[in-house]
Nucleic acid binder design. Structure first.
Lengths: 195, 195
DNA sequence: AATTGCATGTAAATTGTTACATGATTTT
DNA sequence: AAAATCATGTAACAATTTACATGCAATT
């Protein structure tokens, strides 16, 4: 699970903090890289403290619990960054929909692709705001690298979505597909080798 | 959950199939878009059949259960593609590591970035193999769109990783960071405005 | 005084992974 | 005969989301 390393890392990066602050940090800086809700964060902090990777140090204003990272936590973070194989397994809901997009009218799929392009543009605007900074400290330099990655990937996605919308415009109308259309499928399959 | 729509979609796309075949399909065609193990697929098929979105039709050779999609399933799939807001929430473990990459030696981070670039190149090779097809049928045209998306995103990631590796080469050695270094952090923070 | 924001937690449900368990059929 | 592949399932665990529940502090 990357969440625990995200929490250790944020404590290392931004100093002692409460779970609430970490939850907000997940909504800001690292949100486009990883995200988590407080319902997951609070129990995980307790487990990390139990494991000695972070430490509950003091109490803030209104029952706030401040945590800080331990040396063991930083060592674990370094180990994770370099020595643990990166978990594979892409999950892209937009692409899954497009994969089945031949089932809807081309005009509808085109509209979907353009709406996705617009959504990506919105995200790109946010990231470009992040990139405007100066990046003087080591942690800011590292953050800048991830922002650049996001910008490049979003640009690739925007270009693709607009190209794909254009492609779809040339498609013939969708055939009626129903679960009872086994005969139709068999007909098409048989015809293919001849073409 | 997109898994259930992935299952309905594959049954719609490739005709009646067993859970085993669907599990293999998730390892092949849609793997770079979505993935699932049989431990999740079999129970989900039972639930989908219960909900009337797919139907258990016949029994194959050795206790194999063949499912086919129903009209209700296709209607649900169409609804999901167009009318359900795309779930947000990126999760990119590579970027999370790079975000905290200032904690390891620049040479180590550089090596990590180059190893990621190599991994991306491997995936790109697989996708380019998929793209070599002709794409005559509607479903093949749709699949081709997703393959193109994958190729563009992987190229963006390769370019980024190699650019970032180059950036990191110019970084000064990592400072020793430890949990006890609160004074060091405060010192750096106080110094910044003057610079 | 009421609203907003800070702050923590847990319970329940869902989603996903891993490991265990079983047996049939085909290939070597 | 043994090994590989086909085929299904469940149990246990891990990860994640959503909703519920509470209370303090600052602002309007």
């Amino acid at each position: 699970m990357s969440l625990r390393h995200g929490l250790i890392g944020l404590l290392a990066r931004e100093g002692p903090q409460t779970g609430y602050q970490l939850a907000r940090a997940f909504d800001r800086s690292v949100n486009f890289v990883w995200h988590a809700r407080h319902g997951q964060i609070y129990p995980e902090l307790a487990r990390l403290a139990e494991a000695g990777l972070i430490r509950h140090v003091e109490d803030g204003p209104r029952g706030a619990k401040v945590y800080e990272v331990t040396d063991a936590g930083i060592a674990e973070l370094r180990r994770w960054i370099l020595d643990v194989p990166v978990a594979v397994g892409t999950r892209n809901e937009t692409l899954l929909r497009v994969f089945f997009g031949y089932l809807v009218e081309p005009a509808e799929l085109e509209a979907f692709l353009l709406s996705e392009a617009a959504r990506y543009r919105g995200l790109l605007g946010v990231l470009e705001g992040f990139a405007a900074g100066d990046a003087t400290s080591p942690s800011e330099r590292a953050s800048e690298l991830t922002v650049h990655a996001g910008i490049r990937m979003l640009n690739a996605q925007i270009d693709w979505a607009e190209w794909a919308a254009n492609e779809v415009r040339t498609w013939p109308p969708a055939q009626a597909v129903s679960s009872g259309d086994r005969a139709g499928r068999a007909r098409r399959r048989a015809r293919r080798p001849r073409g």
